[in-house]
Design a protein around this nucleic acid. Structure first.
Length: 787
DNA sequence: GTTTAGGGTTCG
């Protein structure tokens, strides 16, 4: 960038220094300190002729004296100016010298690099010198006093210092800094609600401090070209502000960035839009060091998903080629993409009119079994419309949703890119030079399209080979340093025990361990939910809806007994259905203070209802208890059926340990000041031993010394998801699946699995022949940032 | 010259 004369100011008033700059005393200058927000002020006591270095760079040397500290022993410093700036500076200074005495020049420099000289000086010069070189950024201000010239002027010239980079734990509010960081999270550039593109980037560095930056630019190209978590960025002139008690970065004037692949060993080639940037050996070293740090401190999960690997109820990032696109309606847009692999599930086809579909018809036909439809919504539509057929994309956080259409008996997979930018949801355009694109292109070219009948044999590229360049050092660091995906909720003072020691010891004992989750059972997570009786310690499967339906059918044969209707504590309504086989239904509304309550506060008992009817009633009423009539009282159904339905949860009682009591015991709860209708309380008055929903899983844990199987027995604490709600809540199922994918990412080598810190206890189980030692995980939970 | 967003998944 050419050097510019930025400002000429009349009069003697203030020098227009940026507010973040602070004056630095010469004696405080030290090599290696961050002087990004400091300036040195003095007078130019000596200037040498402008010369050229051997490589043709202009070079200008001056001596600056700190006039406020003349008495100080060291009050001068050499300032070396390189490049176009040297030329401009020489011009201004020498012009000034002609008009006046040189000591009238006030010289201010900011954004310099402090270089320590090899030997101590004998004179009054500083034992460091300042280096400033050519590039946009920091500045030199030269101020000429008015009495010496008719029109005094302050000239500011852009100067490139050798940049100083601030670690993320040293950021201060209101400063403008240069920094390096590893990308921990990012949102690819999207169109903001203002006038610019926006990209959100969260960085970390070895100080382990995070910084989230909001980057804005009207020019897409000037935002950092980040393609994946783990990329390394260098930001110049980012403004630091405090927001909600945390530092935040935001683009300021002159913001510039470089982005590097974060892979250890990959060439250090910056991605940037600016044609001119500084990049020297020292900076290459910084990038390489950050890569090694990141390899063991940043988890890169889910980055390698291919269409052949997708699982329902998951969000994933897909690197793919665009082969078709179509407008669907105002708020959604269709992208047809492929990555050469075949999705193992039936995938949906979004109906669009042929005339609206853009793309090569022949290719689209050839790829009919390989390309998938991704429907993008809302804010992503505009970007999607602008994409060119054939381009390579990374689509972030696609939602895989299992669904079935009314006219289909088999479910299919849908791919949605929902509106908003949560979790980095968005579309990124990858250049052909991207290594992942090169690999993908090669793979796509190897796909034989005439073989489309035999697509099932096609699988994703060998994941091991993708990670082939993981060095021994990196593996070692991973073993030593990687942050755990689980955390302990107690006993933090206990030290870690190796698995081999544990398997050699007698039970019972408690241990803290650090291990990786090699595999777990059941893989189908819904199968991990069981019912547990805390009294007899039995476990049973959660009855399915057919069991309940069967019991309801059986009890429908018993007609409601009219003598039991309308008592002191409930009001009854009955009717007969108009179906072919008539059915009598009675609903008993439990009263409070002899009054009926709002439905959402009311417990009802129902006789003769079907599964569907009962389910509908649970939506409206606080609690539903299915009952049947006997000669002299209402009673619960068989305990294979839920004795209570509340919200989404069916509550069951233990057949062994329950001794059902009369329903009228409920009236004691109804008489409470504000009946809460807690399932535990209802169970208690009805003589029911309540069964608890639990997750039971078997974790195969390994460390460097051994492997052992530990059971997870969890109501809610480990996953932070209530086991009681997982079966009826699609969202929670997805959350649990994602948690397990983080703990045990599919298709990874052992070295790439994250660490888990857990407590386990060993215990003996008496078998017919001998004792067996089992292990159970306890006082452990998923780390906060995992899901 | 200011604003945008300010990470933490879902209407479809």
């Amino acid at each position: 960038m050419p050097v510019q004369l930025l400002k000429i100011i009349e009069g003697q008033s203030e020098i227009p220094l940026p507010s973040h700059l602070q004056k630095e005393n010469l004696k405080h200058l030290q090599e290696g300190c961050d002087h990004t927000n400091k300036y040195i002020q003095g007078v130019v006591t000596l200037s040498y002729p402008l010369t050229k270095l051997r490589d043709g760079t202009d070079f200008f040397k001056i001596v600056v004296q700190d006039s406020d500290n003349l008495g100080s022993q060291i009050n001068s410093i050499n300032v070396l100016i390189y490049g176009k700036m040297a030329e401009d500076c020489a011009k201004i200074l020498h012009q000034g010298v002609k008009k006046t005495t040189k000591t009238y020049e006030t010289f201010i420099v900011a954004g310099f690099k402090v270089i320590k000289l090899p030997a101590a000086r004998e004179d009054d010069r500083h034992n460091c010198h300042l280096e400033v070189s050519e590039e946009a950024g920091s500045a030199i201000y030269i101020y000429t006093k008015p009495r010496t010239t008719a029109a005094s002027e302050t000239a500011s010239v852009s100067v490139a210092p050798k940049y100083v980079y601030t670690p993320l734990n040293h950021l201060k509010d209101g400063t403008v800094v240069n920094l390096y960081g590893v990308v921990k999270f990012f949102k690819p550039p999207y169109i903001s609600k203002g006038t610019d593109y926006c990209s959100i980037v969260t960085l970390v560095d070895p100080s382990n401090v995070k910084l989230t930056c909001s980057l804005f630019s009207g020019n897409l190209d000037s935002l950092p070209k980040i393609y994946k978590v783990g990329d390394i960025v260098r930001f110049h002139r980012i403004k630091i502000r405090e927001y909600n008690g945390q530092m935040q970065g935001i683009t300021s004037g002159g913001f510039a960035s470089l982005t590097f692949d974060g892979t250890v060993g990959a060439p250090v080639v910056p991605r940037t839009s600016s044609r001119v940037y500084t990049f020297i050996d020292e900076e290459q070293k910084t990038v390489e060091e950050l890569r090694i740090w990141a390899a063991s401190n940043i988890s890169i999960s889910g980055s390698a998903t291919k269409l052949s690997d997708v699982q329902p109820m998951l969000f994933f990032d897909l690197t793919c080629q665009l082969v078709g696109k179509a407008k669907v309606d105002g708020s959604s847009f269709l992208l047809k993409v492929w990555d050469g692999t075949k999705c193992p599930y039936r995938t949906w086809k979004v109906p669009v009119e042929a005339k609206d579909l853009e793309g090569e018809k022949v290719l689209l036909h050839q790829l009919r079994n390989l390309a998938v439809d991704i429907l993008v919504y809302d804010n992503h539509v505009q970007l999607a419309e602008s994409l060119k057929i054939g381009s390579f994309l990374r689509i972030y956080s696609i939602h895989v949703k299992q669904a079935s259409a009314d006219n289909e008996d088999v479910s299919h997979m849908e791919f949605h890119l929902h509106g908003g930018t949560c979790y980095g949801r968005g579309i990124g355009l990858l250049p052909e030079s991207n290594p992942d694109v090169k690999e993908l292109k090669e793979f796509l070219e190897s796909v034989n399209l005439t073989d489309s009948q035999n697509m099932e044999s096609m699988c994703s590229m060998d994941i091991d080979s993708t990670f082939g360049n993981v060095t021994d050092l990196e593996l070692h660091l991973q073993r030593c340093q990687q942050l755990s995906v689980t955390v302990l909720t107690d006993h933090q003072d206990l030290s870690t025990t190796e698995l081999k020691t544990i398997t050699n010891n007698a039970a019972p004992q408690q241990y803290r361990i650090r291990a990786k989750l090699r595999t777990y059972k059941p893989q189908k997570l819904h199968q991990s939910v069981k019912l547990h009786c805390s009294k007899c310690n039995s476990l049973q499967e959660v009855p399915d809806r057919d069991d309940f339906d069967f019991i309801l059918h059986g009890s429908a044969g018993t007609a409601p007994n009219p003598e039991l209707h309308n008592t002191s504590w409930y009001e009854s309504v009955t009717w007969t259905t108009q179906e072919q086989k008539q059915r009598e239904i009675a609903i008993h509304f439990v009263k409070h203070d002899e009054m009926l309550q709002h439905p959402e506060d009311t417990l009802i008992m129902i006789e003769g209802g079907t599964l569907k009817e009962i389910w509908k009633l649970t939506k409206k009423f606080k609690c539903v208890i299915p009952v049947r009539s006997t000669e002299d009282d209402l009673e619960l159904l068989d305990l294979s059926a839920p004795f209570l339905l509340k919200g989404n949860v069916k509550y069951y009682g233990c057949k062994q340990c329950s001794t059902p009591k009369p329903m009228k015991n409920l009236s004691s709860i109804a008489a409470e000041q504000q009946p809460s209708w807690e399932p535990t309380e209802i169970a208690q008055v009805l003589g029911i031993q309540l069964l608890q929903y639990v997750f039971i899983m078997k974790f195969t844990l390994v460390d460097e010394t051994a492997s052992l199987n530990a059971y997870l027995f969890d109501h809610e604490k480990f996953f932070q998801i209530p086991a009681s709600e997982i079966l009826t809540n699609n969202f929670l199922q997805e959350k649990m699946q994602m948690t397990m994918n983080t703990l045990c990412p599919p298709g990874r080598k052992l070295g790439e699995l994250p660490w888990l810190e857990c407590f386990i206890k060993s215990y003996n189980v008496r078998g017919a022949m001998e004792n067996q030692v089992y292990y159970q995980i306890f006082d452990t939970t998923i780390a906060e940032d995992v899901v």
